[in-house]
Design a protein around this nucleic acid. Structure first.
Length: 507
RNA sequence: GGGCAAGUGGCGAAGUGGUAACGCAGCGGACUGCAAAUCCGCGACGCACCGGUUCAAAUCCGGUCUUGCCCUCCA
């Protein structure tokens, strides 16, 4: 089954044909590190991480590069405000970035190049463009002459004249054409700067991505990604620089752009002030839930943020994770045995699971349709729940064996979305006291059911309470049973009675 | 002003020619001592609006309306 991807450059869905068979080279535009990232920044991280994970699942060897813009006006200004060295400020926020990205289960790139570590390469590109007569100097600035690059506009789909009409472009006397953009900026006093043939200065923003992607991936690499606000001018300029420099096209074969996160239909952005910091959101929502939310809509569509949507995502996600827990509780380390005589109903079940898995792949193969893929996972979950909870369910070795395989499939697909649940949350020490109190409060109703001494470890303590409750239920002492369950629920511990015993989980 | 998207049940969201996935919420039922979880069933007579093409359109074409994004730093 061929994998198809929508390419912003051709404006068509195309089959993904890597330059080197079975290898995919991806460059994703990374953050300018002067602040904590917000949910809108997190979307491309999760989207391209998911694309990467899925490609790896499909057997491609993926080389993934994501840059840090660690020198730029915003960094310089913020550093001035905080009375910090711009370099230290950028380093600090690179660290903060990794904390958030790691929390969101975004796998680290193979290379995380920084702009400031590639100044010589950038100067080399400017130099070549200058020598070719495509770039020109004015007062220590070096500009790229868009009129010298006939293909300018091919990514954003407009001509130079269209861009000019009614455009809000600064009229800068020093530029030959208003749309010319800066490759190298003359340094202002007190700013970080590097030596160049045109005097002290620093690189323009677009330059780094052209230079670093060419360096680490080579001309004609497979996928270049970023938010759709980067199409123009950032990516358009990257193409112009790189292709004028190398003299070969395409610079990148496929361009993928994600839609925005919005709030009340408006783009979430720092300048509008309607942004939600990932660090804050993680206090309230598990990383899986944020990921689920971000992947519940196709990557190219806008995605509206609201508490309501996140609550819905939480419920939806727990539906899937409940199925995983259900499987774990049944299998519990058992492997079962392969059996030649698989009962027909088990075989049919297995086929339905395989069919769901195929549907998942079909969805993801079609331009990474995660929303449709999730639907396939919900279908798969329903099959599993139904099979396992059926009143005729008997966990014979053959059935266990099948379920082990089913769980493997389910988890593998889940993992392509980065949605595997984290470690089951442990009961912290703070629960010890709380459980102790609950036990005390039950003393009157519980009578001799409650042992005098409870274990110290919170988990063991909880297990003891569950055993007590089980005994109470056997004796039809439902008042005690319900009271205990309600008390635990108040504290965020949910008890579920099943034919296989009582399980607990944290809300 | 120019360019580009999008408008699908209460909400979110798939679906680009053959008669509307999936999730949340709601209702009914099963299971349960009761819950929870889970399963089954119900729910758009219609996919912004108006025309057109076609045996057949949410899906193609034309027009209208609305919303968002880009044209300036922005994921």
């Amino acid at each position: 089954m061929a994998l198809k991807v929508y390419n912003t450059l051709s404006k068509k869905k195309e089959e993904l044909v890597p330059g080197v068979p079975q290898q995919v080279k991806i460059y994703a535009c990374g953050p300018t590190t002067y602040n904590f990232i917000h949910l809108g920044n997190a979307r491309p991280l999760v989207v391209f991480d998911t694309i990467r994970r899925y490609l790896e699942y499909k057997g491609y060897q993926v080389t993934y590069v994501q840059n840090f813009t660690d020198i730029d006006d915003k960094i310089i200004n913020k550093a001035k405000l905080e009375n910090m060295d711009p370099h230290d400020l950028a380093e600090k926020y690179i660290g903060e970035y990794f904390r958030d990205a790691d929390a969101l289960r975004v796998k680290r790139a193979d290379v995380h190049p920084r702009a400031t570590e590639h100044i010589p390469e950038m100067l080399e590109m400017v130099n070549v463009l200058y020598e070719k007569g495509i770039a020109y100097e004015a007062d220590g600035d070096v500009y790229f002459s868009v009129r010298k690059f006939p293909e300018y506009g091919k990514l954003s789909g407009r001509t130079l004249d269209e861009m000019l009409s009614g455009a809000r472009v600064d009229v800068d006397e020093r530029k030959d054409d208003p749309l010319d953009f800066v490759l190298w900026k003359a340094a202002k006093p007190g700013e970080p700067s590097w030596e160049s043939p045109w005097g002290q200065g620093r690189p323009g923003w677009h330059l780094e991505c052209s230079v670093m992607s060419l360096k680490y991936l080579g001309s004609g690499f497979d996928i270049h990604g970023g938010g759709s606000d980067l199409i123009f001018p950032h990516h358009e300029n990257e193409i112009a620089q790189a292709e004028a420099y190398t003299g070969s096209a395409p610079f990148a074969r496929c361009w993928i752009h994600n839609g925005f996160v919005t709030v009340d239909q408006e783009k979430m952005s720092k300048s509008l002030g309607n942004f939600f910091i990932v660090r804050e959101l993680l206090h309230e929502w598990a990383p899986e839930i944020l990921r689920f939310f971000l992947l519940s809509t196709h990557y190219s569509s806008p995605l509206d943020y609201s508490t309501k949507s996140l609550k819905s995502a939480r419920k939806s996600y727990s539906r899937l994770s409940n199925t995983l827990e259900l499987l774990d509780s049944i299998l519990d380390g058992e492997q079962g045995e392969a059996d030649r005589s698989i009962p027909s109903n088990v075989d049919a079940f297995r086929r339905r699971i395989d069919s769901c898995a195929a549907q998942y792949e079909e969805a993801m193969d079609d331009n990474f349709n995660t929303a449709l893929g999730l639907a396939a996972l919900f279908d798969m979950g329903r099959e599993i729940n139904g099979f396992v909870n059926d009143k005729d369910f008997v966990p014979t070795p053959a059935v266990i064996h099948t379920l082990v395989q089913v769980r493997k499939t389910f988890k593998e697909l889940f993992d392509t979305l980065g949605l595997l649940p984290g470690e089951k949350r442990q009961l912290g020490p703070e629960y010890g006291e709380m459980l102790q109190e609950i036990a005390l409060s039950l003393k009157d109703v519980a009578g001799d059911l409650l042992p005098d001494q409870l274990p110290h470890a919170p988990e063991e303590m909880l297990d003891t309470l569950i055993t007590v409750r089980q005994e109470a239920r056997v004796r039809k002492h439902f008042q005690l049973a319900d009271q205990l369950r309600n008390a635990l629920k108040e504290e965020g511990i949910i008890l579920e009675d099943t034919p296989r015993g009582t399980h607990w989980r944290l809300v």
